[in-house]
Design a protein around this nucleic acid. Structure first.
Length: 134
DNA sequence: GCCAACGTTGGC
DNA sequence: GCCAACGTTGGC
């Protein structure tokens, strides 16, 4: 099993929206690095769900329920989508401030490449995040 | 709302 | 193939 982090602006699509919907298509990604990460995802992989902008915290864990297929919002066949579903919310959301303040996360992509919207997370990082999230 | 960091585009 | 110009993301 592999671990990932996906960003969403809560004003556009929040964790609560995902819970309400039961599952959602993750489409509209238009960045090659992010797309390649989407394509590497397998059913059952875990996704840390991060609220960017207003929020700036990891709020819960989602799961890949359908692996990569052509993005229906794209006519060119260049881009890919997946489908995710919520697994559980954190008792205590893990904020960007907390992550940045901890040297354990110095190498985390969330810190080093803050613009990448779909990124891999190591098992160590994942385990510590979910421990902090409760 | 500003702007730094990063990606992409297009002229040369 | 380089790089300046431009657009976007996302933290502050």
């Amino acid at each position: 099993m592999n671990y990932w982090l996906c960003k969403s602006e809560p004003e556009t699509y929040s964790w609560q929206d995902l819970v309400n919907d039961g599952s959602t298509i993750w489409d509209g990604v238009r960045n090659y690095a992010a797309r390649n990460n989407l394509r590497a995802m397998q059913v059952g992989d875990r996704i840390l769900f991060y609220h960017s902008n207003y929020g700036r915290e990891i709020v819960g864990i989602a799961e890949v329920s359908v692996s990569a297929f052509p993005d229906p919002s794209d006519d060119t066949g260049t881009w890919s989508s997946i489908i995710i579903k919520p697994l559980r919310a954190f008792k205590r959301p893990v904020s960007l401030d907390i992550i940045k303040a901890d040297v354990f996360f110095l190498e985390m992509i969330l810190i080093k490449n803050s613009r990448l919207s779909v990124q891999p997370v190591t098992k160590k990082e994942y385990d510590k995040i979910i421990q902090m999230g409760g």
